[in-house]
Each structure stands twice: as structure tokens, then as C-alpha cells.
């Protein structure tokens, strides 16, 4: 019997991406640079997060023409972002046969109460989360991969660190609780009890967890890996830097060798300027993207 679109197949692709770097790209040329640098996948979007921030306006799914060009140019998986709750963008992306859909807070949300019912799709979804409850809600909706949100388009890793430490800390806490307490905790987390229990028993999320939002240097990538990320997304950090091709290679090497300071030092040399950053901690709440998602 042959089964398509099972959770094992969906989360299985995320397992294959582990230890890798997924790079935001807006054109086929950028996708090629990413693939040549050793990216394990590319993420198609119409503007990188720092441009969305700077230019404002409504941020939508990428132009299908661009996505097709990327699919024809690279052999690594091509992912694409859909707006939160915009299940028709997701239907279109599935029809285009993108390999993963990111239901992303970086784009302007289309629904302020509901996320996409991801069980309705054969294509797998990755979703952002700032804490364990949010991660488990997304998984209960059918997400096959999680990424911590960080604060996209800032080049400031502080929020990525906060979110990763929060989720890992909450998982550690769950492991100290007995069954009686897990019922209450599931309620507090606004997450399904069965998932909460699974996490308590296994000490990890049931799906792969990457880090995103603010990674701009090889050191940032290795930091997130040492904190427990299983791979990293890099958005504006590469194509808004002085030498994208070189920085892309360096971030890939740093992610592979995240525990080897000697290699981290070698790859950090001569990269030119990183993307100009924004201090995320000093940013007004209303400008933060991470609060989108419910």
C-alpha cells in the first residue's frame, strides 16, 4: 500500500534538512548562489524581511513565475512563504509543487484568529513559534516542522536566542512534572494534552526545530546550533550583506561545524560587512513581527 502526504513523509523531509541552512531568496540567481554555497533548501519570497520592514505595504506570497524559475534552476528543495491563515496561497503553492510551505509571520497575516488547517495538504508546512505552547498549537494544526521566530529583518540575534531558550527551557520544565501537573500545564500552554505529554516523555518537540529571525553571521548560526537548534534559516542576513556568496558559504560551514571554534574563526575572516542591523530589544512592540501568530 502506498501512502502520500503522511506525517512521516512530511516531517521526514525536515529530518533530511537537519544540520543545514535554509536561505531566503527572491530570484533564481540568488537561489543558485545559495545552492552553490551549500544551502540545504531555499525559501522563496517576494522581498527579504529587512526590505519588507523598510518599505512597508502588504507582504504576500512570492510571484509564481519567480518560484517556477527557482524550481528550474536548483535541485535542492524550494520552499515558499504563505500568509498566516491564507489557505488559498497555500493551495496555489501546493499546485506549484513547492517542497515546503512556511506559514509565515514575516508576511502580512490574512486571518487574525485562524491558522491554515495544514492537515488538508499533502505538502508539509513549517511554522514559527516563540514558545512551547505556540509550537504545539502549530503541530496540532498539522505543521511538520517548527522554527523559532526571532525577529526577522533585524540582523539582531537576541530574539532568536530568547525564543530558543524559552522553548528548550519549557521542555526541560515539562520533564520535571508528574502526570497530574501535565493536565494543568497543557491548559496553561493552550496546547493539546497528548502533545504536551509526548514532549514531557521524549524531551524534544515531535518535529524538527530550526532557528530563524536575526541570524547575520557565522557566529550567530553556531550560537543557535549550540543552543539546540537543529538547523537555521537565514533571511536578510545573506543577501543584504556586502558579499552574499562568501557569507553564505561561511554560514553553511559554521552550521556544520558549530562546535569547532577553530573552524568558526577561520570562516569568520574576510566576510566584509554584515547586514546593517536594528536593535530588536529597543524596537517598539508594534513594529515587532514575532507577535503575529495565535
Amino acid at each position: 500500500m502506498t501512502d502520500i502526504g503522511t506525517m512521516r513523509v512530511k516531517s521526514g523531509l525536515a529530518e533530511m534538512l537537519k544540520g543545514g541552512v535554509i536561505m531566503d531568496v527572491t530570484t533564481a540567481e540568488q537561489a543558485k548562489i545559495a545552492e552553490d554555497a551549500g544551502a540545504c533548501a531555499v525559501m522563496a519570497l517576494e522581498r527579504v524581511p529587512s526590505d519588507i520592514r523598510a518599505q512597508g505595504g502588504v507582504a504576500r506570497m512570492a510571484d509564481p513565475t519567480k518560484i517556477k524559475e527557482m524550481q528550474e534552476t536548483v535541485t535542492i528543495p524550494v520552499m515558499a512563504k504563505a500568509r498566516i491563515g491564507h489557505f488559498v496561497e497555500a493551495q496555489i503553492l501546493e499546485a506549484l509543487e513547492v517542497d515546503y510551505i512556511d506559514e509565515s509571520e514575516v508576511l502580512t497575516p490574512a486571518d487574525e484568529a485562524n491558522h491554515i488547517n495544514k492537515w488538508n495538504f499533502k505538502v508539509p508546512f513549517v511554522c514559527g513559534a516563540v514558545n512551547l505552547g505556540e509550537a504545539l498549537r502549530r503541530i496540532s494544526e498539522g505543521a511538520a516542522m517548527i522554527r523559532t521566530k526571532g525577529e526577522a529583518g533585524t540582523g539582531d540575534v537576541v530574539e532568536a536566542v530568547r525564543h530558543m531558550r524559552t522553548i528548550i527551557g519549557e521542555i526541560h520544565h515539562l520533564q520535571t512534572l508528574d502526570e497530574d501537573e501535565l493536565f494543568k500545564t497543557a491548559k496553561e500552554l493552550s496546547a493539546p494534552y497528548e502533545l504536551v505529554r509526548w514532549v514531557a516523555e521524549n524531551g524534544k518537540l515531535p518535529v524538527v526545530n530550526f532557528s530563524a529571525g536575526g541570524i547575520a553571521t557565522p557566529a550567530d548560526a553556531a550560537l543557535m546550533m549550540q543552543l539546540g537548534a537543529e538547523g537555521v534559516f537565514v533571511g536578510s542576513g545573506i543577501f543584504k550583506s556586502a558579499d552574499p556568496a562568501r557569507r553564505a558559504v561561511a554560514i553553511v560551514r559554521a552550521t556544520t561545524n558549530y562546535r569547532d571554534p577553530q573552524i568558526l574563526a577561520e570562516v569568520s575572516v574576510g566576510l566584509g560587512d554584515a547586514m546593517p542591523g536594528i536593535d530588536a530589544a529597543k524596537m517598539p512592540e508594534e513594529l515587532k513581527i514575532q507577535t503575529r501568530g495565535w
Partner: peptide, 15 residues
């Protein structure tokens, strides 16, 4: 032949 069965939406499991 790489990706011989198609892109991710065609990924599957079988006995």
C-alpha cells in the same frame, strides 16, 4: 536518477 519520484508532494511510504 535524482528526485525520480518527483517533488515532495509525491513523497510516499510503501510496504
Amino acid at each position: 536518477r535524482r528526485n525520480a519520484f518527483g517533488r515532495q508532494v509525491h513523497s510516499f511510504e510503501a510496504d
